[in-house]
Simulated scan of single mutants.
Amino acid sequence: MRLLKSTIHPDADINSSLILKREAARAIVLKGQNILMLYTERYHDYTLPGGGIDHEEDIVDGLIRELKEETGAKNITNVKPFGRYEEYRPWYKNNFDTLHMNSYCFTCHIHDELGDTQLEDYEITNGMQPVWINIHQAIKHNEDTMQNSDKKGLSIERETFLLKLIVEELV
């Protein structure tokens, strides 16, 4: 899969012996200029649906599982690779100090109607919810959050980069 971007957060130690490697799959679901996103109240941002791939799980199977769990998506079809975003960033859990994450992004189609979500407890606590939003509004919102909010999380730069690339190449 083509590399879209590789980033190193200034606080990440890429030479550390305590690097957690993680693979994630992220869904790009478009209807015209509207995109299916996850809004997270805690971080005040919009992110692509998706998440970590389980050990020995096929990446497309993981994408479909995450998309169903987080958005209630049904009839997921036409899954196609879009690109990989690689990042190193600080990590403060499980005796690691750096996270090396590869986010594999795929375009796909879903049924217009969303079903029930199966969010994890921390996702519910963070105020995560699936929403359809105009992609340009999502970009503007994330840019405003990056500039003006102390609530922003570490993933917002990745997500905003991906949204801009999606506009450039797919919208």
Rank of each mutant, 00 (worst) to 15 (best):
A25I: 05
S6T: 14
I59L: 07
L38T: 13
E41D: 07
D61A: 14
L3I: 06
T125P: 00
I124P: 01
Y92H: 13
R89I: 08
P10C: 04
R84Y: 06
L48W: 09
G62C: 01
Y104Q: 15
L162G: 13
G32Y: 10
L4I: 02
G72L: 05
S149P: 14
N148E: 05
F161K: 02
A25G: 03
K5N: 07
G32S: 01
Y92D: 14
N75E: 08
G153Y: 00
M37A: 06
L165N: 13
V167S: 04
D61S: 14
N15F: 09
S16D: 04
T98P: 01
D54H: 12
E69L: 14
D97A: 12
Q33N: 12
R26H: 15
T98L: 01
D116Y: 02
W91M: 00
Y122G: 12
V29R: 10
R42E: 15
Q33R: 13
V79D: 15
E56F: 13
L114W: 03
I28W: 00
K80E: 14
K80R: 07
N15T: 02
N95P: 04
N102W: 06
R26C: 11
T40P: 13
E57F: 12
E168I: 12
E87I: 10
G50L: 01
G83A: 08
T117A: 07
E87D: 07
I110G: 00
K93F: 12
L18C: 13
K140H: 08
T125A: 14
K21G: 15
F161C: 01
L165Q: 06
E168V: 15
D116I: 13
E87R: 04
K152M: 15
I135T: 00
K74E: 09
R89L: 10
E23W: 12
E120H: 03
D121Q: 06
Q147Y: 12
R22S: 08
E143W: 15
H109P: 10
I110A: 06
H109I: 12
T117G: 09
I166F: 00
L119R: 11
E86S: 12
P130N: 05
E168G: 12
I139Y: 13
I28Y: 03
W91V: 01
F96L: 03
H100R: 11
L165S: 04
K21C: 14
D61Q: 13
K152T: 04
W132M: 03
I139S: 02
D112Q: 02
G115I: 00
H136Q: 08
M101S: 14
N126H: 12
R89F: 11
L99P: 11
V29T: 10
T98K: 04
N102G: 04
P130I: 01
